[in-house]
């Protein structure tokens, strides 16, 4: 149940596809203005969890409450306060960056002038205002990622889902994204962030949940998780992760 402090609460979430149990009885909460990292190897259930939290996928069991509203029963209301940046570049590549942002903004209910102003502000946020009129297909991978993120900001969400937003981009773009995410948190936004990069999670996240085989196997701040590994000297989050999820290859 959400409170003044807790903005997202997931309880007993489960989802299976045919005979595969993708997510199994996951429960956790995210506090307001917190960056919560959801880590896990490939196929652990991160994206399925995000899709259930963001009202796109209906869970087989469990419930999600976001901002005191049930994501199952009041999906329409919940969608007004969330923004989702999927793992894929979910943009219209034939359109310009500004046209993409205006379109998604207007679909979220903004007026024409309001959407244009928000689009310019968001492009400025990720350093792409000067390229705003260019078609997205002409952008580099990092630029597309940055546009992909700010599309999720067009609805002025209180909770932002970022599903592996830094995959396949250069360190400069990655750093720019880190700064953007931290800036958003400082402005009052709550963020759920999934990534494969442990140093990224260590740097950004206030708390981390490690998920494997569809189950939450660890939950705590980066320091708490490192401390849980009974080992002398400097422990990295990657060592904690490998210790918990094993070293065998995943699909």
């Amino acid at each position: 149940m959400t409170t003044d402090k807790v903005f997202l609460s997931a309880s007993g979430l489960s989802k299976s596809f045919d005979s595969v149990q993708a997510v199994n009885d996951i429960s956790f909460s995210i506090e307001r203005q917190e960056i919560f990292g959801l880590l896990g190897p490939n196929g652990a259930g991160k994206t399925t969890t995000i899709r259930m939290l963001s009202t796109v996928l209906e869970p087989d069991a469990g419930d999600v409450e976001i901002g005191s509203r049930s994501a199952l029963r009041e999906a329409g209301e919940v969608r007004k306060i969330i923004g989702v940046c999927p793992q894929e570049i979910a943009l219209y590549e034939e359109l310009s960056a500004i046209d993409n942002l205006v379109f998604f903004g207007r679909m979220a209910g903004l007026g024409g002038k309001e959407a244009k102003e928000a689009a310019r502000a968001n492009l400025e946020l990720v350093g792409l205002l000067e390229r705003g009129r260019d078609a997205v297909r002409k952008f580099s991978g990092g630029m597309k990622r940055r546009v992909n993120i700010v599309v999720a900001l067009m609805s002025r969400p209180q909770l932002l889902f970022l599903d592996e937003p830094t995959v396949g981009i250069d360190p400069q773009s990655r750093n720019h994204i880190f700064d953007t995410v931290l800036g958003l948190r400082d402005e009052g936004m709550t963020v759920l962030y999934t990534t494969h990069y442990m140093e990224e999670a260590d740097r950004l996240c206030d708390r981390i949940g490690i998920i494997d085989g569809g189950s939450m196997i660890a939950l705590g701040s980066p320091d708490e998780l490192k401390a849980s590994l009974d080992q002398d000297g400097d422990v990295t989050l990657e060592e904690v992760f490998l210790n918990m999820t094993g070293r065998s290859l995943r699909d």
Binding site: R51, S54, T55, V56, G76, R79, K80, I82, G83, V84, P86, E88, I89, A90, L91, Y92, F104, M107, A108, G109, V151, S155
Partner: peptide, 13 residues
């Protein structure tokens, strides 16, 4: 397939 429709759905469409 490129998830723009899903994005629209989570956007309130």
């Amino acid at each position: 397939q490129n998830h723009t429709l899903e994005r629209l759905m989570s956007n309130g469409t």
